[in-house]
């Protein structure tokens, strides 16, 4: 019973973080600032969701697979994000800053 409650709480927190990440991807002004909320999905969102599922699994093989999914995400997501940011910077994309917003110059591909 306590396990159930704990897992519900964990899943709820995970769902909240996933939602926040989604909103952030839509709301932030440029690529670089979008990466930060997007990262929440991969770490806190996925972590709490999978933890909640883990508490519900009851089978060690299932638990191992859930942990493996999380470990894969933890290893791949920062590499992908880093590669993305690096590639975008090399391509000449300039990060959005407060000053540039006032200057109103736009960048990115037409």
């Amino acid at each position: 019973m306590i396990l159930d409650i704990l897992s519900w709480i964990s899943i709820a927190i995970g769902a909240f973080f996933v939602l926040v990440g989604g909103i952030g991807i839509w709301r932030m002004p440029d690529l670089f600032s979008r990466m930060h909320p997007a990262g929440i999905i991969d770490t806190a969102g996925a972590g709490f969701l999978l933890l909640g599922l883990l508490l519900q699994s009851g089978d060690w093989l299932v638990s191992v697979k859930l942990v493996l999914i999380f470990v894969f995400l933890l290893f791949t997501s920062p590499v992908a994000t880093h590669a993305l940011a690096h590639a975008a910077l090399l391509d000449g994309l300039k990060p959005w800053t407060r000053r540039r917003d006032k200057a109103r110059d736009k960048d990115g591909e037409p």
Binding site: A38, L84, L93
Partner: peptide
């Protein structure tokens, strides 16, 4: 930009 789309694809994948 293309990079925004890649970011979106990556996270839709997750």
């Amino acid at each position: 930009t293309v990079y925004d789309r890649i970011l979106a694809v990556n996270h839709i994948g997750t």
